[in-house]
Simulated assay, not measured.
Amino acid sequence: MRIAIAEDSTLLREGIAQLLVAEGHTITAAVDTADELIAAITTTPPDLVIVDVRMPPDFVDEGVRAALEIRTAFPHVSVIVLSQHVERRHARELLDGRGGVGYLLKDRVSDISGFLEAIQRVADGGTAFDPEVIRQLLAARVEPDARLATLTDREKSVLELIAQGQSNAGIAKRLFVSQSGVEKHINTIFTKLEIAPGTDYNRRVLAALAFLDGSGSPS
């Protein structure tokens, strides 16, 4: 796929670029500011963008603001945000009910196979949220609504893995159950959370939102 990278650390930026080129992808831009990223995407839209949360000039939230702008102006472009630490507000802003988005801690990039898997999952319209991001979002959520209380412990485990962006196969592997068993659990979760049929990934993202928010309708 065609990928643009925005990361102010030259070492990390070039390392990611070389890794992706070795995997057969094309780097359309490798820049160190959010403004350069927006300009590059406007000229040559990629399939996916990898962007650091904090970038020059102020190192506050330039990267995530660029990511949100890209998701609005270029909805066909998938986005993965990298961060040194979990920033709950930014993570929650990226979860807007659509797929094609990820939020990973930079430490996870060293897990090359996991990083490449996350890139592919997001590019395919799914989500990839770091387990630590999910944990902190759960810690900050409001009181759960009645629908979440109807889920069994196993269904809650499945839903937490959905929130991370795991595929059915990934969930089955982690919970030591069959994929058909996972599919049954997911269908039951959708029913209990009153999520109407639609695009599979959208339903999964909406279920994750209901889980992380703990309140409100996922529809």
Rank of each mutant, 00 (worst) to 15 (best):
P57R: 10
D58Q: 13
V60M: 10
V60T: 15
D61L: 11
D61F: 08
E62G: 03
E62L: 00
G63K: 05
G63Y: 02
V64D: 09
R65K: 12
A66N: 00
A66Y: 01
A67T: 05
A67S: 04
L68Q: 10
L68D: 05
L68Y: 03
L68N: 03
E69I: 12
I70L: 01
A73P: 00
A73G: 06
P75D: 09
P75V: 10
H76Q: 15
H76E: 15
H76Y: 08
V77D: 09
V77R: 10
V77M: 10
V77L: 09
S78M: 04
I80Q: 05
V81R: 02
V81K: 02
L82S: 00
S83E: 04
H85W: 11
V86A: 11
R88V: 15
R89K: 13
R89T: 15
H90M: 10
H90R: 08
H90L: 09
A91V: 07
A91K: 05
A91D: 01
L95F: 02
L95A: 02
D96G: 14
D96E: 08
D96H: 07
G97W: 06
G97S: 11
R98C: 12
G100Q: 12
G100H: 10
V101A: 15
V101Y: 09
G102R: 01
G102Q: 03
L104Y: 09
L104G: 09
L105R: 11
K106Q: 07
K106D: 01
D107E: 15
R108K: 13
R108V: 15
D111G: 05
I112S: 06
I112K: 14
S113M: 12
S113W: 06
S113P: 00
G114P: 08
G114W: 03
G114K: 08
F115I: 09
L116A: 07
L116V: 14
E117H: 13
A118M: 07
Q120L: 12
Q120N: 14
R121I: 14
R121C: 07
A123T: 07
D124K: 06
D124I: 04
D124P: 01
G125C: 00
G126Y: 04
G126R: 05
T127W: 03
A128I: 01
F129Q: 05
F129D: 03
D130M: 00
P131R: 02
P131T: 08
P131Q: 03
E132W: 06
E132V: 14
E132N: 11
E132D: 14
V133D: 02
I134D: 04
R135Y: 09
Q136V: 07
Q136D: 12
L138D: 07
A139T: 09
A140Q: 11
A140L: 08
A140V: 08
P144I: 02
P144M: 00
D145F: 06
A146E: 14
R147A: 06
L148W: 00
L148F: 01
L148D: 03
A149P: 00
A149M: 13
A149W: 08
A149K: 13
T150H: 05
T150Y: 03
L151E: 04
T152V: 07
T152D: 04
T152S: 15
D153I: 12
D153L: 13
D153T: 14
R154P: 00
R154M: 15
R154L: 15
R154A: 15
R154E: 14
E155H: 06
E155R: 04
S157K: 12
S157Y: 06
V158C: 01
L159D: 02
L161N: 01
L161A: 08
I162D: 01
A163D: 05
